[in-house]
């Protein structure tokens, strides 16, 4: 078998933030050890490094998209650029037209219409990508988005592609992806090529509402998914409601995890729950076993 045929990409998502996505993804990463490549695709609020302790071995700059800039000496202050800019990025301050990096979306329309060619487009540095060894010896690809940079979706794609090529090269069985909250471009980007999605939710009205929305996105891509109900004992009625939803949509119910301060305690020590003596350890081990089973059954 070719390596691509045995490689499985597992994405951890939640819709709502703060349901325990990263704690679960990190635990699975520890259990998978060196059989997996880890990809942190929550580039806007990356946290998994706090538990997996990567060494930031290799760093490279990530460029994506462009930024417009005005050569003041060539500018005749005609104002055409500001007229065509739909992003209100060009303003007239002290007799000069200036472009705000924060607002410019790099469309290049201003460059096209400038009669004196005073506007040039530059490559935009949007962040850094790191390739690291984690504390369990696996390879991890992670990133840092520059403050206020655009294109988080493209940075996610860059992280994933890097993780994928490493997994193929090193013949790894799994890629474990920590996704971002929401349903927008970083989430969609993290789903491309995924074999299985682990949804982490909580029994709150918000948790279920957000789960439904993110699941609707996953369904469009026809990716199989399983769900962990975290803090299930916070509201048993809602837990039952979530289970009905899972049954109805044929989402595999992976586990109920109790509302346990042990997660936070472990995090404070820079550990995942599976590195502690908490009884939850066994539960997460079962989840990992079940996810692997699910993927194999499907194949």
């Amino acid at each position: 078998m070719k390596p691509t045929e045995i490689m499985n990409e597992i994405v951890v998502l939640s819709g709502k933030g703060g349901t325990g996505k990263t704690s679960i993804a990190a635990s699975l990463a520890v259990l998978a050890g060196n059989s997996a490549v880890i990809a942190d695709c929550d580039v806007g609020a990356a946290n998994i490094h706090l538990l997996l302790k990567p060494d930031f071995g290799k760093t490279f700059e990530f460029y994506s998209g462009e930024l417009a800039s005005i050569h003041q000496e060539l500018c005749t202050v005609c104002g055409k650029c500001a007229e065509v800019c739909r992003f209100k990025a060009i303003s007239f301050i002290d007799d000069h037209y200036l472009i705000s990096d924060l607002d410019c979306e790099g469309c290049g329309y201003c460059e096209r219409v400038c009669p004196t060619h005073a506007i040039a487009m530059y490559e935009r540095k949007s962040g850094h990508v790191y390739i690291s060894k984690t504390k369990v010896g696996s390879t991890m690809v992670h990133a840092r988005l520059d403050i206020s940079a655009e294109n988080s979706g493209k940075l996610v794609a860059a992280v994933k592609n890097e993780a994928k090529s490493i997994a193929i090269k090193e013949d790894k069985q799994f890629i474990i992806v920590d996704g971002s909250p929401g349903i927008g471009c970083p989430v969609v980007s993290s789903l491309s090529g995924a074999n299985y999605v682990i949804l982490v939710t909580e029994p709150t009205l918000s948790g279920l509402h957000d789960l439904k929305r993110v699941h609707a996105v996953i369904s469009r891509f026809r990716i199989q998914s399983g769900c962990i109900i975290n803090k299930f004992d916070l509201n048993l009625e809602k837990t039952v409601e979530i289970k009905h939803f899972l049954e109805e949509l044929q989402i595999h119910h992976l586990a109920d995890i109790s509302y346990d301060i042990a997660f936070t305690q472990a995090m404070t020590e820079g550990k995942t729950i599976v590195e502690t003596s908490s009884p939850l350890k066994q539960l997460i081990e079962e989840v990992w076993y079940n996810v692997k089973e699910q993927i194999i059954i499907k194949k």
């Binding site: 703060g18 609020a45 988005l145 940079a149 988080s152 971002s180």
Partner: peptide
Amino acid sequence: CPPGTSCPVI
């Protein structure tokens, strides 16, 4: 606001 630090928050 949305969570994170990327374009939607800004």
